[in-house]
Every structure is written in C-alpha cells, then in structure tokens.
Simulated assay, not measured.
Amino acid sequence: MATFGERMKELRKERGLKQREMAEICGLKVRSYQQYEYAENYPTVPGLVFLADYFGVSLDYLMGRKDEQE
C-alpha cells in the first residue's frame, strides 16, 4: 500500500495541481507542504480531515491503510 506522502502526490497530480498551488489551498508555505509529500512531516488531525474532504477520500485511504478511495 502507498504511504501518506505518495497518496498526497498522487491525489494532487490527479487534480493537475502544482505543489505551490496545493500549499496555497492548505494555507501552508511550499516547503511545509513538500514535507508532507516527502514524508518528513504530517498534518494535524484537522488538517488530515480537510485534505480527505478536499480530495473526497476516506482518512484510511489518505493514510495508506486502504486502497479503495471510498
């Protein structure tokens, strides 16, 4: 199964967004967002919920616990 960082990159690319654009959506600096994709840092719980809602996926999918987006 994919890691959180791999899922973030995959979901971002599916939407045709650049890291800079995704950082703006999340209210982060680009480097902070990049740390998510490079598995150097993780969002807070409210941040995870925001991302799951934004991409329309479950938290289990986002965190790499399931392969079905639901």
Rank of each mutant, 00 (worst) to 15 (best):
D67Y: 05
Y61K: 08
G47K: 08
K18N: 12
M63V: 14
M63N: 15
E68C: 08
E10S: 07
F4A: 03
A52L: 00
Y42R: 13
S58Q: 02
M22H: 06
R31Q: 15
Y38M: 07
E37F: 03
L28Y: 11
D60H: 00
G16T: 03
G64S: 09
V45A: 15
M63H: 12
Y38C: 08
K18D: 05
L62C: 00
D60K: 00
Q69W: 10
R7N: 10
K66F: 12
E10L: 05
I25T: 13
V30R: 08
R15E: 08
D53A: 10
D67S: 07
K18H: 12
R31N: 14
K13W: 07
Y36S: 07
K9R: 04
S32D: 15
D60T: 00
T44A: 14
F50H: 07
A23S: 13
D60Q: 00
V45Q: 15
R7K: 06
T44I: 12
L62Y: 02
E6H: 01
R7V: 02
M22E: 06
A39P: 06
E70G: 11
V45I: 15
R7T: 01
A39G: 13
T44H: 10
L28E: 07
Y38T: 12
L11I: 00
V57H: 09
Y61H: 10
L48V: 13
G5N: 14
M63T: 13
K66W: 05
F55S: 01
K18V: 09
Y36G: 01
G16H: 02
R20E: 15
Q34L: 11
E70N: 09
Y33N: 02
Y33F: 11
K13P: 04
Q69E: 14
L59P: 05
L51Q: 09
Q69C: 08
L48W: 01
L62G: 00
E40N: 13
Q34K: 09
A39Y: 09
Y61T: 04
K29S: 10
M22R: 05
F50D: 07
P43R: 08
E40L: 14
L62R: 00
Q34Y: 10
R7I: 00
G5H: 12
M1C: 05
V57D: 09
K66D: 15
V49R: 09
L48K: 02
D53G: 01
M63Q: 13
N41Q: 15
K66G: 10
P46N: 07
M1Q: 05
L28H: 06
M1P: 01
L17W: 08
R65W: 13
K66S: 15
V49N: 10
K29N: 12
L62Q: 02
L28F: 08
L17T: 00
G64A: 05
L48M: 15
R65P: 03
A52D: 02
G47S: 11
Q69T: 08
A2Y: 12
R7D: 03
D60G: 05
A2F: 11
L17V: 09
G16F: 03
I25M: 10
Q19E: 15
E21Y: 05
A39D: 15
S58V: 01
L62H: 02
L59V: 06
V30Q: 12
R20G: 06
R65V: 14
Q34V: 07
Q34C: 10
